[in-house]
Design a protein around this nucleic acid. Structure first.
Length: 421
RNA sequence: CGGGGUGUGGUGUAACGGCUAACAUUCCUGUUUUGGGAACAGGCGACUCCGGGUUCGAAUCCCGGCACCCCGACCA
């Protein structure tokens, strides 16, 4: 489905900003009709928003497949037994559980992460060094009972995460994949339009490892503080910012600049913590039993979407990068003169036939100003206007969302314009 | 979880303890208009978050609850 008539779209734009949202991402996404707030930290995704999420997921999917990832969907409803071997069922160790009970009083929980789940599953299939390495990922909802949801869709209690887990024979094999994953992540953020603002950042490894790596996007509204080396393109999270770390990364304090940033991705080495606890072992060539060496790699598509909005919008609305925009073209039919709507309709069908994703503002009795305002707010990369004036000038007006003025083109020129970018 | 703030038509706001809770927007009817949220006329839409209390009288004051936002802590 590459097309949509705005007269049929059930969502509408709002003139007023919601009073209960301060963050820019939620304000714009709600005003433009991409998302709806259900409760604090819980949002629904509407047609426009879902299109963006799907675009983001497809980019991630392509890059995960390119490094050997195999996609699955793991269950959200979890039994206690899966989590007990790693002591993660205990509320003292994990305080973000949503737990409930079956009719027969059996305790179950909603998964807030999936490494234990998948590790247990992989025991069914990994028994030999011949079975390794393997890389498994999914897009699945995580439920986290955060004490405080905040910043619109940046930190929520229910969110989809792409989480990939790597299963390797040993640390050496793992490190090779880890580096490939880093590159894949860089590619993802570049393709999503925020590569120039996103830095590979050394961070604390949490309970699993000494270090982890985050992908941090510079934005004043971010939750984190990082120190960026612009030339080397890497950064250090404030939480591990000290002389030892600076030196180990070959950096120097003089070239590091402090910035606020938002974490858009996180990769870390799990080592054998889960495979030890859940006994995910394989037999080596010489017949020894050895624990599988694991890693974890996460990206939240919605948070990525929110970050893009934070970073790329202007006073009029959102500015989507073409790669993740809900549509490539926003076609506007202005006025009721003569054959404007007839011509616009013709162009609409022509664009569809050419495989161009187009949102067609075919609404009658809506002023030009309102259509322009909607187009700016929704933020589709190309605006194409069909009006009495444009037709008199010999065609359609095409204007990029990022530019002020447009130009008049005929059908052929328009298609060329839209194809070669 | 500590601290601060806010709850009024769908949305955004106003209202000294005192008339039928006001205005804008959205929406509906009609007329007019059509390149930057245009104009006019008419209309629909609210147990003022919930429950108690004070008072002749509560959107307004008090108590309790719930919800939302912000700062901090947390973020495997």
């Amino acid at each position: 489905m590459g097309d949509m008539k705005q007269s049929q779209l059930f969502t509408k734009t709002k003139k007023e900003s919601p009073a209960d949202e301060v963050s820019l991402n939620a304000e714009l996404l709600i005003k433009a009709g991409f998302i709806n707030k259900e409760m604090a930290g819980v949002y629904s995704y509407l047609p426009l928003g879902l299109r963006v999420i799907n675009k983001i997921e497809n980019i991630i999917r392509e890059e995960m497949n390119a490094i050997g990832g195999q996609e699955v969907t793991l269950a959200s409803l979890q039994e206690k037994a899966t989590w007990e071997p790693t002591d993660q069922w205990d509320d003292k160790n994990v305080d973000i559980w949503f737990k409930t009970k079956l009719k027969n009083d059996t305790e179950v929980g909603l998964a807030w992460s999936h490494e234990a789940v998948l590790t247990k599953l992989m025991k069914e299939f990994i028994s030999s060094y011949r079975d390794l390495p393997k890389y498994v990922y999914q897009f699945q909802t995580k439920f986290r009972n955060e004490t405080r949801a905040k910043s619109g869709i940046m930190r929520t209690r229910e969110f989809v995460m792409k989480d990939l887990y790597s299963f390797c024979k040993d640390e050496e094999e793992h490190n090779k994949f880890y580096e490939k994953a880093k590159e894949a992540y860089k590619t993802i953020f570049k393709r999503a339009g925020i590569g120039h603002l996103t830095y590979l950042t050394s961070a604390s490894g949490g309970v699993f490892a000494k270090f982890s790596h985050e992908f941090q996007t510079i934005t004043s509204t971010g939750e984190d503080t990082i120190y960026v080396d612009e030339n080397k393109g890497i950064a250090i999270n404030k939480e591990v910012y000290n002389d030892e770390v600076i030196e180990s990364l070959g950096l120097s304090k003089e070239t590091l600049v402090e910035n606020r940033s938002a974490e858009v991705g996180n990769i870390f080495t799990l080592n054998t913590r889960f495979s030890d606890a859940l006994e995910l072992v394989y037999q080596t060539e010489s017949g020894d039993r050895k624990s599988v060496f694991m890693g974890s790699y996460g990206i939240g598509p919605a948070r990525l979407m929110g970050t893009v909005v934070e970073v790329l919008s202007d006073s009029k609305g959102i500015i989507w990068p073409e790669s993740i925009a809900p549509f490539k073209v926003h076609l506007l039919a202005l006025g009721e003169d003569g054959n404007v709507h007839e011509e616009a309709d013709k162009l609409y069908n022509n664009l569809i036939a050419q495989g161009v994703e187009v949102l067609f503002d075919d609404r009658h009795d809506v002023n030009a100003g309102e259509k322009f305002a909607d187009a700016d707010l929704i933020g589709v990369p190309y605006r194409v206007v069909v009006s009495k004036r444009s037709l008199a000038d010999g065609g359609y007006e095409i204007k990029k969302r990022t530019e002020e003025g447009g130009k008049i083109v005929n059908t052929d020129q328009l298609l060329i314009e839209l194809k070669n970018v």
